[in-house]
Amino acid sequence: MSKGILYDATLCIGCKQCESACAQQNELPYDEKVAAESVQTDHKFTTVLTKDDKFMRRLCQHCEHPACASACPVGAFHKTADGPVVYDVWKCIGCRYCMMACAFSQPKYEWGKLNPRVRKCIMCPDRVSAGKATACAEACPTGATKFGDHDALIAEAKDRIKQNPANYVDHIYGLNEVGGTSVLLLSAIPFEQFGLPKIDRVGDVALPEYTGRVMNLMPDFIPLWGLVLGGVYWVTNRRKEVEEVEAEEKAMRGGK
């Protein structure tokens, strides 16, 4: 059963417990200075954004069809059966295509290091496979960040909007975006106000499909194009040979 996270901004009080728990879980430094940082970086995988009295949490969406995993030439990213999209640092060559490919700009880079890693939320895969909730969900005092079965969370999110339509933007961010994501977001104000990509801009198509359409042509294209080239070579070469032989014959006949 695939797991997921539901973040409901209307329940969030902006205490940043999730940030702190995340830092602890991933052995990252965390103090007041880091807490005040509002951008995600190589040392801050999740951040709680504030706009007036509204909040929004940003983290890797753990896409159902992750663009990062599809893009990586060495397959350093993959989505586990539980839902988390994880990263194998020992494979990475550092091309940063994953960072380009992610619509949510989640992978961050250790620009200052000599053997840099790509860093992002990996949804506590060890905890999840052990049947526990993610560190952030466990730390959340209000239940704004909730961990659970993906399908159950979708049903719950729909239900919350239905119960209190006035409280919410009528959209579950991540239900269909880029083909669906394991992390679902609910908010009272439009998501793009917090820097999330506009809903109509990201669309519902799984991003790997765009490149997949071209890559799928390869198995047919390679033999076909090879055959055409070989064929053209054969024809032109043959013509040249024939010309040469004819010229020779002509010369011989002329000699007689």
Binding site: S70, P73, V74, K91, I93, C95, Y97, P116, T211, V214
Partner: peptide, 26 residues
């Protein structure tokens, strides 16, 4: 120069991701 971990450039040959355009280019 550009790769973050150029010393692992040969990983391209052993960790193959057939979905990746970058893999194909490489």
């Amino acid at each position: 120069f550009d790769l973050g971990r150029p010393w692992f450039i040969w990983h391209q040959m052993i960790y193959i991701n057939l979905h990746s355009v970058m893999f194909e280019v490489g």
